[in-house]
């Protein structure tokens, strides 16, 4: 215990993180703003972290190939210790993520928390909402079962109605003329690299909760 403490102190002298974390934790919150309605932002963040951890776990077993995606999920469900549980956490976590993010948005709207000087927080939040929905869609594609296949068909049909460019957008989305291996590969890339990378960038942008202006 003493060793952990001295290692922690050695790091903190150099990183200087401890005091700012302590300050945030001990920051007095005005009585009238201490409300459970503020919990949904943190809740979304917690579920987001859970999705990252369980997602990395699933990536250890999952095979992003049209021919093997489904059977690799059978392996995950039946041959890996608690694989079914990790997969269940990730699947339910995605539903919770969408639900909590929407509740969070309603709360921010009803409380008027999008007003000056927090307009950018709202705008960034809209992008994060789109990314959450994008993660939910690209994630369910990865199962590559009938749901995923016909869901992609719906997505392609919607995209095809864009004037002039519709046909090209469909080909771009599917990675070819039909829903096949290339489609799964690009949705895997979107789900695992592109969207998480983008949301990581966007998350870094908003000011930290705007608490300073509240003082």
């Amino acid at each position: 215990m003493r060793l952990i403490k001295s290692i922690g102190e050695w790091l903190d002298v150099r990183l200087q993180l401890g005091s700012s974390i302590r300050e945030t934790m001990e920051h007095p919150v005005p009585r009238e703003t201490a409300s459970w309605f503020y919990v949904f932002g943190s809740a979304a963040f917690v579920v987001f972290m859970l999705q990252i951890v369980t997602g990395i776990m699933l990536a250890l077993i999952y095979v992003p190939s049209a021919g093997e995606a489904w059977s690799s999920l059978q392996t995950l469900n039946h041959d890996v210790a608690l694989g079914w549980f990790i997969r269940g956490l990730h699947g339910w976590g995605s539903n919770f993520m969408v639900a909590i993010v929407l509740i969070h948005m309603v709360q921010v709207f009803l409380f008027g928390a999008y007003k000056y000087p927090r307009e950018l927080t709202w705008i960034v939040g809209v992008f994060l909402l789109l990314m959450t929905l994008g993660m939910a869609f690209t994630g369910q594609v990865l199962r590559f079962d009938q749901d995923a296949y016909w869901g992609l068909g719906i997505g392609a049909s919607i995209a095809s109605r864009v004037p002039v460019m519709g046909h090209s957008i469909v080909n771009l989305m599917l990675g070819g003329p039909i829903i096949a291996g290339a489609t799964l590969s690009r949705f895997f890339a979107l789900h695992v690299f592109v969207i998480p990378g983008l949301s990581h960038r966007v998350c870094g942008c908003p000011p930290p909760d705007g608490t300073e202006t509240r003082n």
Binding site: L50, M57, D79, A81, L82, G83, F85, I86, L89
Partner: peptide, 16 residues
């Protein structure tokens, strides 16, 4: 509660 299943899952190739 969350870490225990994750660790068990990770150790699956060793413990199964």
């Amino acid at each position: 509660i969350l870490a225990v299943p994750v660790v068990r899952y990770l150790l699956s190739p060793v413990t199964r």
